[in-house]
Simulated scan of single mutants.
Amino acid sequence: MEFFRDVRPEDVFTPRSATVNKSMYVDRPEYERELKYALRSGYHLIVYGDSGCGKSWLYKKTFDNEGVDYATLDLNNCKTPDDVELLILEVIEQDQEWVEHERSELTEKGVMPYDVGRKKSGSRTLRKAQLSAFEKLCKKLRSAAKRRRAIVVFENLEHAIMNDDIVTYLRSLVLSLDDVSLCKENVQICFVGVPHDIKGILTEENRYQTISNRVTEISEVSRLTRDQAKILFRQGFEQRLQMEIEAFDYCLSQIVYLTDRIPQYIHDLCLRIAFVAEERGELCPPRL
């Protein structure tokens, strides 16, 4: 077996990477197709599934393929709607345009140099445009996206979905995008999280179904198929790390069993195996 060290294992297997590792991304056509069609429908989106199953990579890869401009907001540490507002402010520019809010003017009779007429004196009062943090974010996204689609992504919804105040706030954001001031920005929202009933929670107590008519969800993002796990395993060890694997099927069966085909777990286990292989100069199959 040969092991070429021009690529490091941690650059290949990336269990905690927030950005898509494009060389190791395994196509998931059924989910990608659903998400693409839901995106083009104009609805707000829900992507859900167990932790580690690849929800974030899925939406980021699909959005990139579709030329979508998006801003991601991680709700992990949000306890109140104010926390969400502060989170939004972190991703937008703090400088605000000054606009003329009111003007006062004093006119009095008098003689002007070189002419006879009225001279004026007065003052102008300028105030900052009164836009909410979410409105500013939508305008910023639309400006950057131009004619492309623009999306605000709320990630890790499971950390906030049981907080009634935050849920009420998120509902208000969905409805606000139909207001005259924001409708023209043509921005969608994408909710990403673990719970299977995100849509039900968002629409609860919404008696006129105004939320449910605006939101759609794709099928639950689940673990990889065995063939997809095989592709991930082969891409990492054979194609990227240039490691010739003996007893390939046995190694694969062990990894599939130990990780239950959850992408993050496969990355994590393969990274540890690659570290050991790097140290020993040989690939040792994981033991049950």
Rank of each mutant, 00 (worst) to 15 (best):
E2N: 06
R5H: 06
V12Y: 04
R16A: 08
S17G: 11
N21G: 10
M24P: 12
Y25E: 06
R28H: 13
R28Y: 09
R28F: 14
R28A: 02
P29Q: 09
Y31V: 01
R33C: 03
R33P: 02
E34I: 01
A38V: 06
A38C: 03
R40C: 01
R40I: 12
R40H: 09
S41T: 09
L45W: 04
D50G: 02
S51E: 10
G54W: 06
K55I: 11
W57V: 02
L58D: 01
F63P: 02
E66Y: 08
G67M: 11
L73S: 05
N77T: 08
C78L: 13
K79T: 15
D82I: 14
D82Y: 03
D82V: 04
D83E: 07
D83A: 08
D83S: 02
L86Q: 10
I88M: 12
E90A: 12
V91W: 05
E97W: 01
E105M: 04
L106Y: 07
T107P: 00
G110N: 12
G110T: 02
G110K: 05
P113E: 14
D115H: 05
V116K: 06
K120G: 00
S123W: 07
R124W: 08
L126C: 03
L126S: 13
A129M: 11
A129V: 14
K136N: 15
L137Q: 06
R142A: 10
R149T: 03
R149C: 09
F154D: 00
E155M: 00
N156C: 11
I161N: 01
M162S: 15
N163E: 02
D164R: 15
I166C: 09
L170C: 07
L170W: 02
S172P: 00
V174Y: 14
L175F: 07
C183N: 13
V187R: 12
Q188Y: 02
Q188C: 03
F191V: 07
F191D: 04
G193A: 09
L202E: 01
E205P: 10
R207M: 03
Q209D: 15
T210S: 13
T210C: 04
N213W: 01
N213P: 01
E217Y: 01
E217D: 08
I218P: 00
S219T: 15
V221I: 08
S222V: 05
R223M: 05
L224W: 13
Q228C: 13
A229N: 01
Q235H: 09
F237H: 11
F237A: 13
Q242G: 11
Q242Y: 04
E244P: 07
E244I: 08
E244H: 09
A247G: 02
F248C: 15
Y250N: 05
Y250H: 10
Y250L: 08
C251E: 03
Q254C: 07
I255H: 03
V256N: 11
L258Y: 06
D260P: 05
I262E: 05
I262Q: 15
Q264Y: 07
Q264G: 03
H267P: 11
C270D: 09
R272P: 03
R272M: 15
V276S: 03
E282K: 11
P285G: 08
P286T: 06
R287V: 10
R287N: 06
